[in-house]
Each structure stands twice: as C-alpha cells, then as structure tokens.
C-alpha cells in the first residue's frame, strides 16, 4: 500500500513544553485515521507540522515519499478543514466565493456544483457565509477543501459547536468520501464512538503516541479503551 504520510521521530518543543515527543507513524492510501487524545495532547501541533504551518520540528515528515520541507507543492494535494474557521462575521463573501477561494484550477470549476450537492449546501450558494449555521459553514469549508481533488483530507475536531443532526450528516459525508472517492482522511476527534464507527485506523496521542493501529485492535482491547477514557475523563474534570 502506498504511503501518503510518513512521520518519523517527530518532536516539537515550545518554550518550556514538549508538545510532541518522538512520534512516528504512517498513513497509507485509503486509510481513515482517527486521532484521539485529550486537549493539549499535541493534535493541532501535529497537524500544523504536517501542513507546513509549524516548521520548527525535529524528525521528518514525508508526503508520498518526499520530505515536505523540500517544497510546498505537496500542499496542493491536501484539503484541510480547521477546527473553527475564523473569519469576520460580516465578511462580504458568499458560499460560492468561499468555495472558489479554494479553487486552484479554473478547469475544476464545474465540479463545484456537484460537490455542493453532495454536501447538501447547493441551495446556499448565494448566501453570505456569516449568515449560515456553524454546521453549514463547516460543510462549506469541506467543499472548499475538496474542489482541487485532494488525495488527503485533514480535519481538526471538525464538529465542535455543531448540532447533532449536522454531526450525523457530516459523518456520513466523511464515510462516503473515504469509501467511494477513496480519499485518505486524517481526522482528530473527541468522540470515541464516532471514531469507532468511521475510522479504520486509530492513533492515540498524548505528547507521545501510545497506540497506532487498526481501529478494531484498539476498540477490542478493553484495557486500552479504559486507559484512554480515564485519561480523557481526568482531562474533562480538570477543565471544569
């Protein structure tokens, strides 16, 4: 199986804190990898490093076998959906404007309608982005990430602040993108049940990687699930 992303001995240190410590794993073509871990586990740092936003790391990150520090070209093959897209609430951009921002080649333009339909937002094309619900906005950002036919889709806890109905719809869309369109997905989430249902691989991250493998191996191992649940429960209590 072709390796889409290979991460070797990735260590990221911020002043006084080690965000990631010697993390190594790889993602093969067609994988749907769910990354789980408590808040502050280094998930966003991991994504920032893969996406070239953080270049101060030790170790290597390869995309289709090439070191990502050699050229930024690889970014053209990645679609990224951030946790909460930050923009001015009254930014004068319609849904079509936003999706078009992602468009790198004019030739892909005719695909836009199809993508908007697939994501159930085709009727919103002329609405301003700021008028939509968070769930709808999130789907617009997925559409934007998809217009260039990415090989890899990266989503950072994409259901924060979205209603249950939108979450279900969102999950079914992800499933379809992975199974029908064969898009490799890396997705970080707090929702263990959803990861269990959707992902075929799981990575457990908390500064270090303490599990990476097929999701069945993780969810069939009560000890691992318990450990994870306790860790995130403590984290949860800590936050309240």
């Amino acid at each position: 199986m072709l390796k889409v992303v290979e991460i070797e001995h990735l260590t990221v240190e911020y002043p006084g804190v080690k965000a990631l410590d010697d993390v190594s794993f790889s993602v093969s073509e067609g994988d749907f990898l769910g990354i789980i871990g408590p808040n502050g586990a280094g998930k966003s740092t991991l994504f920032a490093s893969i996406l070239g936003l953080n270049t101060k790391y030790k170790g290597t990150i390869k995309f289709f076998g090439k070191d990502i520090q050699k050229s930024k070209e690889y970014l053209k093959l990645i679609g990224y959906v951030p946790q909460k897209p930050i923009f001015e609430k009254n930014f004068p951009a319609t849904v079509n404007d936003v999706v078009n921002m992602g468009l790198r080649k004019k030739s892909h333009e005719k695909k836009i309608d199809e993508i908007l339909q697939q994501l159930w937002i085709h009727e919103l094309g002329n609405r301003r982005i700021g008028e939509l619900s968070v769930g709808q906005q999130q789907r617009v950002f997925i559409a934007k990430a998809l217009v260039n036919n990415p090989k890899l889709l990266i989503l950072d806890e994409p259901v924060t602040g979205i209603d249950q109905h939108s979450i279900e719809l969102f999950y079914s869309i992800l499933k379809e993108l992975n199974s029908k369109q064969k898009i490799t997905i890396i997705w970080s989430s707090h929702d263990l049940d959803a990861v269990n249902k959707l992902a075929n691989h799981v990575a457990c991250l908390n500064q270090t990687l303490f599990f990476h493998g097929e999701s069945d191996d993780f969810f069939d191992n009560d000890e691992l699930v318990k450990q994870y649940s306790e860790a995130s429960m403590q984290e949860h209590m800590h936050h309240h």
Binding site: G52, L53, L75, P85, I86, A93, N100
Partner: peptide, 18 residues
C-alpha cells in the same frame, strides 16, 4: 485576486493552500 481574497479571509487557510 484569489490570493488577495483568500489571505484576507483567513491567513492560516490561505497558507495551507500553498
């Protein structure tokens, strides 16, 4: 146009898109 608009809309996402 696209570069100006995108980096005005969201710098981080514009960076990630290359």
């Amino acid at each position: 146009y696209r570069q100006f608009l995108y980096s005005t809309f969201n710098e981080e996402q514009a960076k990630v898109s290359g």
